[in-house]
Computed example of a mutant assay.
Amino acid sequence: MTVTIENGQLIAKIAEKGAELQSLQSRDTSREYIWQADPEYWGKHAPILFPIVGALKDGRYRYEGQEYELPRHGFARDREFTVIEQTQDSVTLQLVADEATRTVYPFDFALNVHYELGGEGLQVRYEVHNPSQKELFFSIGGHPAFNVPLEDNLTFEDYYLAFSPMKSRIELPLSGNFIDMSQRTLGATNTNLRLTHDLFQNDALIYETKGLTSVTIASEKSPHSVRVAFNDMAYVGIWTPYPKAAPFLCIEPWAGVADTTDATGELTEKLGIQKLAPGATFRTKYAIIVK
């Protein structure tokens, strides 16, 4: 099932499977900003990454002496969520732990995903609640993919990325699917970054982020753009598949990140892992602003 929310400017569609944003359109022009999941390139729109972000070494982790397996980016994107609240311009979907999740992830949790339209954008809010009597360890992130180009007469290479604030950030290179901390460098996010597919020949670009951050996809040849803004995410990933010349780009705010090349496999020691006390609730959000 798919839920539709709308206001005077925008219409958004969200699937109950994975609580995945599937469409964000201008009401006036019908311009579609979200990638429409052509399987020739990548068959998803904007999956939610939970309870891990990225890949685990050997696809496994350990917790309290037991070993578990999780696929890359976790399981939330493949689970059915329940709509628990809906208005004309907002919806909240929920996933709670069950017998199936506990076999691969031995924690109780309630994950709420809230979408709300306002003005020229869509706010996406994540809430993770720990109903148990033990600490909850998790990561969470967004993976929205945007059409690039946003106009038929332009190309991927006509666009650039603009970072705000315009300053250098630590870049975390990947070695295979894993972060190689020994190769950390200073990323050139203090200037606009012209898009080419060759930028992604080593997979995603990953940057450390602190405080209010935004990343904009824009072109000098068009008034139309997409900006992703967030305040409480420690990392952002930017990705399009390589070597395919795919007509989309993902901007992914993350509260967590893939395993490092020297990861121990212990969940509690994982880079970027969130630790939530019994009875507590973790909250974070990001916004998609379109023109």
Rank of each mutant, 00 (worst) to 15 (best):
T92D: 11
E64M: 07
A280G: 03
Y105F: 14
Q183P: 02
N7D: 15
A46S: 14
F282V: 01
W239T: 00
A277G: 06
S132E: 08
S90L: 13
R27G: 02
E157W: 10
N112P: 08
W35N: 04
Y160E: 05
E69T: 12
I288S: 03
A19G: 13
Y160A: 12
L10Q: 02
T268P: 01
S23M: 14
Y160W: 12
Q88L: 15
I217K: 09
Q25M: 13
E252A: 01
L199W: 10
Y286I: 09
T155N: 09
P241Y: 03
G43E: 08
F156A: 10
V148M: 04
V226A: 08
M233S: 03
I14K: 09
A263L: 02
F50V: 08
E269F: 07
H143K: 12
V3G: 12
G141C: 04
N147K: 08
E157G: 11
T185P: 11
F137W: 15
W42P: 00
V148A: 04
Q86D: 08
Y61L: 07
E252I: 03
P173S: 09
Y61T: 09
Q133H: 14
R227D: 08
P144Y: 02
P243W: 03
I289E: 10
E85N: 14
I11N: 05
R62C: 06
G8H: 10
A263M: 01
A245I: 07
K210V: 00
K167V: 00
L212I: 08
S164Y: 03
E16A: 10
Y126S: 01
P253G: 06
L56P: 03
G118C: 11
R227M: 14
R169S: 00
Q201C: 06
L271E: 03
Y159D: 11
Q88M: 14
G237P: 09
V96I: 15
P71N: 04
D158P: 04
Q201H: 05
I11K: 07
D180T: 12
F146A: 04
D203A: 12
G74V: 02
K244C: 02
P51E: 11
G118Q: 15
A145F: 06
S139T: 12
K17M: 07
Y105V: 15
T2P: 02
E208M: 13
F138V: 06
I288E: 04
I179A: 12
G119Y: 07
H143G: 06
A263V: 03
S90P: 06
A12Y: 01
K13Y: 08
V83P: 11
A100Y: 13
W35H: 01
T101I: 10
E67S: 10
R102A: 13
V53K: 09
A255G: 10
M1V: 10
S222K: 10
D108F: 13
I217T: 07
G187A: 04
L95S: 04
K134R: 10
L195Y: 10
A287V: 11
K17P: 05
T196S: 15
T191K: 14
Y207C: 02
S214Q: 14
T260C: 13
A204D: 03
L95P: 05
L117M: 05
E67L: 05
